[in-house]
Design a protein around this nucleic acid. Structure first.
Length: 488
RNA sequence: GGCGAGGUAGCCAAGUGGUAAGGCUGGGCUCUGCAAAAGCCCCAUUCGUCGGUUCGAUUCCGACCCUCGCCUCCA
């Protein structure tokens, strides 16, 4: 498999061990995560699922940043404790994850977990003793970037060259150098009751340190893949490298992968622009989590994604086409029990192409193209009666494997038709038999009012659940406890 | 200013030194009491602009134009 490595700015061959260790930067729970955040999480989900179908075991950590300036301010404004303030946003995050069918990470450590705070303090202690950190006049502890020569290599920023010009403003800070970043922020009155005791006085961890500590504690000194949004390259990931490598003396990450940004209707998503969406907003508008997932998934992760209502509509129609295909295959195999034949090609299409497309830096567009070619070609063959039951069964088996990566299986296929609808349909059948078209049309309206639709085919009436995403918001419920366990 | 991403049909979007995947929209056909649905078929002599290299470039090189992002805590 090949992946683009941000560190080298090249697509590289990547040969993972049986177990792949991945660290993914999670949300800061000061608010509901927005679809820009979820664009990155959907990409990480794709990576996770892809690796699993390639027979790797994925050990993935996603952190929850539940202490920082914004969460503290929010808690203070609301007059509640920090944990009371962040709890509903944590819950909201997991609900949204469920709605978008995101695979769970192995661990969801929170920055404020005692074991993580302890790990951070240990790292600072280590860095201080090695001269990589210092305590400034404001009592905060800073990382000394001049002590780590390769600082800037991920973002390709040359700090040696910038140093002289940066000095002009450095008197505004108590830091030795303007680019030095905080490891431990000394407590001040604005922090209220939020602080932890440390050998250097009351305070709280710096954001960059959280990730280093949690990554090393749960995944070890060296991890295989580290993901995040492109805006985390600098300074966040640069700082993580500095912290981890100064502690362990080893290369921290083998492969850095970053998702490009999401824009809305062609411009940057911002609350002030009125184009700021959360998953919850979109669900309320009647879009399903599955549709949102498709819209976020179908654009290659390194391409800036322009999120639009038109795009969501296209996602809805594409999924509908997929649903019809699956429905047709199911209808054919329903009454037959046939062992799945092995199907390698369908006409000119090699079924394995779906997976090999993803081998090349998760080329989802090429993979989806294979899927839709298979859909079109199998319809063509079925129209000509040129597919055996065994082949259809094999196609469904192929789809299941494809779906283990895409997670786009329709969820309404096997919904029972209610007795009442069946009765109405029976009446309509009679009306049609006696050519009572008026009565027939009235009955159709009645059926449609209840969320079902009737289609006349050669032999019979077909009763199908109408697409009504707004009534499906029950896939938005999730048991937080299950996810919130950060294990030991 | 420094670093980076991107400009491919109405919209979204792959891709390759040898002549443009796929999805949506649109059009046509089949089916049909009507309707709807569905399926099939069709839809870029052309890949931001201008030069260069080449037998040949959308793909390589150069310049330029445009859009967007990061540059101390925003995925």
């Amino acid at each position: 498999m090949y992946f683009y490595n941000t560190l080298t700015r090249k697509v590289e061959y990547f040969s993972p061990q049986k177990v792949v260790r991945i660290y993914t930067c999670g949300p800061t729970v000061y608010n509901h995560a927005h679809i820009g955040n979820f664009r990155t999480y959907v990409f990480e989900d794709l990576l996770h699922r892809y690796l699993e179908t390639r027979n790797h075991q994925v050990l993935r950590v996603m952190n929850l940043t539940d202490v920082d300036d914004k969460t503290i301010q929010g808690a203070l404004r609301a007059g509640i404790s920090l944990s009371d303030y962040t709890a509903p946003y944590k819950k909201s995050f997991f609900n949204d994850m469920k709605a978008l069918r995101l695979r769970s990470a192995t661990h969801y450590p929170a920055a404020t977990d005692p074991e993580n705070i302890a790990a951070m303090i240990a790292i600072i202690d280590h860095l201080l003793s090695r001269g990589h950190a210092y305590q400034a006049e404001d009592h905060s502890i800073y990382f000394r970037i001049s002590s780590f020569k390769s600082y800037g290599s991920l973002a390709r920023v040359n700090f040696e060259a910038q140093r002289s010009s940066a000095r002009i403003r450095s008197d505004e800070y108590t830091k030795e150098e303007i680019a030095d970043f905080a490891l431990w922020k000394a407590w001040n009155q604005a922090d209220g009751a939020v602080y932890w005791e440390s050998p250097w006085g009351k305070g709280r961890p710096g954001w960059h340190l959280e990730c280093s500590a949690m990554a090393m504690r749960l995944l070890g000194d060296q991890i295989d893949i580290h993901c995040g949004g492109i805006d985390n390259i600098f300074p966040h990931h640069e700082a993580e490298i500095a912290q981890c490598e100064c502690v362990s003396g080893k290369k921290f990450v083998r492969l850095w992968m970053h998702a490009a940004h999401l824009m809305v209707e062609g411009t940057k998503m911002a609350k002030s622009a009125g184009n700021f969406y959360t998953v919850g907003d979109l669900l309320e508008q009647g879009w399903s989590g599955r549709e949102i997932r498709y819209a976020l998934l179908s654009v290659h992760y390194r391409t800036p994604l322009n999120f639009t209502m038109e795009g969501l509509e296209a996602a809805r129609q594409s999924l509908h086409r997929l649903d019809e295909w699956i429905r047709r295959l199911h209808d054919i195999t329903r009454d037959h029990s046939s062992s799945p034949g092995c199907l390698e090609t369908l006409g000119p299409i090699s079924l394995n192409d779906f997976f090999s497309a993803l081998d090349h830096d998760l080329n989802i567009s090429a993979a989806l193209a294979v899927l839709f070619e298979v859909i079109r070609h199998s319809h063509r063959l079925l129209n000509e009666d040129a597919l055996s039951i065994a082949e259809v069964v094999a196609l469904l088996a192929w789809w299941r494997k494809v779906n283990s990566i895409l997670a786009l299986e329709p969820d309404l296929l096997d919904e029972e038709i209610p007795e009442e609808i069946k009765k109405l349909a029976l009446l309509r059948e009679k009306a049609r038999a006696s050519k009572n078209w008026n009565q027939s049309d009235l009955l159709r309206q009645a059926i449609e009012k209840q969320g079902w639709s009737v289609q006349d085919t050669k032999s019979e009436q077909k009763i199908i659940r109408k697409i009504a995403p707004s009534s499906r918001s029950n896939d938005h419920e999730v048991n937080i406890e299950k996810f919130n366990r950060t294990h030991s």
